[in-house]
Amino acid sequence: MDSVTPTELSVGKVAKRAGVSVQTVHFYEEKGLIHSARNSGNQRRYHGNVLRRIAVVKSAQRLGISLNEIAEVFAKLPKHKSLSTAQWQQMSLSWRKQLQARIDRLTQLRDQLDTCIGCGCLSIKSCKLRNPGDEAANKGPGAVFLQQ
């Protein structure tokens, strides 16, 4: 039986400690979010830093950040090292901007929703949600939204 150093974890141990399924660990590895090495018995072994990476992935997903966006940021980081404070700050700053833009869009949607409730979309020309600034008029007559 192979010995496991304290910083090397089996996939089952990673899953249990991270609070995810083994399939999720494998999925994250397929997506390039975490990395493993193979031991002499060809079993996956993970460095302890994957626990932090999985925690970041789960937190980011809860905020609505896609796995592709997370992977883009992780691709710029060293694979087998924990995040430094500076790296975390840079990553969180980029996500903060995204989240603020999403909050702004949702706030605008919320504020415009009251005018939409009574319209029944009979006046698509003046609908600020579906057709802001009457953008559909530039696309010609007819049901241009159905053509998309």
Rank of each mutant, 00 (worst) to 15 (best):
L51I: 01
T115D: 14
Q61S: 00
V22M: 10
L122E: 00
Y46L: 12
K16M: 14
V22D: 02
N68P: 03
A55V: 12
F27H: 14
I34A: 06
S36K: 01
I124S: 00
C116K: 05
V25W: 08
A15D: 08
K76T: 04
N42M: 14
L93W: 03
K31Y: 10
P6Y: 05
A71T: 04
V57G: 01
S84N: 02
R102Q: 10
R96I: 07
Q90M: 00
Q43M: 13
T115C: 07
I65Q: 04
V73N: 00
N49A: 01
R110M: 09
S10R: 11
K58H: 02
Q112M: 02
P78Q: 00
F27M: 10
R53H: 05
S66C: 04
H80C: 05
W88H: 02
V25F: 08
K13H: 13
Q23G: 14
S10V: 08
A15R: 09
L77Q: 03
T107L: 07
K97D: 01
D111H: 06
E29G: 03
V73M: 00
I124P: 01
V11Q: 13
S10L: 11
G19T: 10
G19A: 07
S21C: 09
E29Q: 04
L106N: 04
A37S: 15
R110H: 14
C121D: 06
L63R: 03
E72Q: 10
D114C: 15
L106D: 14
L106I: 00
K13C: 13
E29Y: 09
H80G: 03
S59A: 08
K13G: 13
G118T: 06
G133N: 14
A55K: 02
V22H: 05
S40V: 06
V20I: 13
N131F: 11
G19E: 05
E135V: 15
Y46V: 10
